[in-house]
Structure formats: structure tokens, C-alpha cells
Amino acid sequence: MGIVQRKDLSLAERLYLPEVVRGLSITFRKMFEKPMTRQYPEEPLPKTEVTRGQPRLVVKDDGNVACVSCGMCEAACPAYAITIDGGETERPIEREPVRFEIDMLRCILCGFCEEACPKDAIFMSDELELADSSRGALVYDLEMLKRPKAALQKRIDYVYRLNQRWRKSSSTS
């Protein structure tokens, strides 16, 4: 806490007009400076590796989704946005999702599903834009959620690096 020293105003300051002119000159100079705002749709936001966008399902290199429809993400979801119906498959993993829906209107982009997934099947992509003219169109089904692994690789690497420290501490204890 400082003590505010009351400054005696000079005559020019009390006349007010010189000060007005000073203020005007400042705003005039600022007029020609480069705008700081972003023209959003034309200049998209920069996406870094920590960008946490909407959840997407990983499609492995063999063309199948990594998801085994265990329901962990469904249970972890605080907004009840995920609905999964599982089915059998001939592949060694025996189960795969028949229906996998995320209601993007309910999704709060918290990333719990990503943490909960035991099979590295769901990751937060860098896709941020979400707009449509009907509610139904914003309930994304399995086909709309599928992304090739390469598209999500940046996030996958980041999550692995983030989880590294837990792995180390668990091995020492």
C-alpha cells in the first residue's frame, strides 16, 4: 500500500485543452497500428499439440477401429454424451462397437474418455468447429467419428509423453 501524493496541477493541466490534445494525439497514433484481432474463419486458430478438441475414434492401420466397446469411456463421461452398443467380431479381439455415438451437444470436451480408454482407441482431436442447423445432425455416429491414426498422431504422442511420469513412478514403488 502506497500513499497517493496529490499532485498540484499545472495551469496547462487545469485548462484541460492541452491534455485533451495530448489524448487525441495518442489515439490518432494508435489508429495506424496493426490490429491485434484475428479474422477467425479465414485465419484459423493455431493448433498446438496440447489442443484438446472433440473426441474421435482411432482407426488402426489395418482399417479397423481400435475400440473394443468395453464401455469405460461411456462410464467415465460426466455428461452422458457417449452411447455404445457392442457386438461380436471374428477378429482376435472378439468385440467391436456396432453403434458408437457421441452427442456433441452434450460433450463438454473434458477428455475423460481419452483417459479412461484402456485400448488407446479414443483421443481428443484438434477439430474445434461445431455447428449445424439441427440437433440430430450433431449426434455423431461411428462413421463420423472415425479418424485414421495418422491424423491423431500428434495428440497420441503428447498423451504418451504426459503419462510417462506415472509409468516411471509406478515402476520405482
Binding site: 489515439t27 494508435k30 489508429m31 496493426k34 490490429p35 491485434m36 484481432t37
Partner: peptide, 13 residues
């Protein structure tokens, strides 16, 4: 426009 320029913005465009 002028208000935008004085505040480092673009204004309606």
C-alpha cells in the same frame, strides 16, 4: 471503423 482502428481491431468488414 474508427473505434476499431483506435483499439487495434478491424471493425465491420
Amino acid at each position: 471503423k474508427v473505434s476499431a482502428w483506435m483499439q487495434y481491431r478491424h471493425g465491420p468488414n
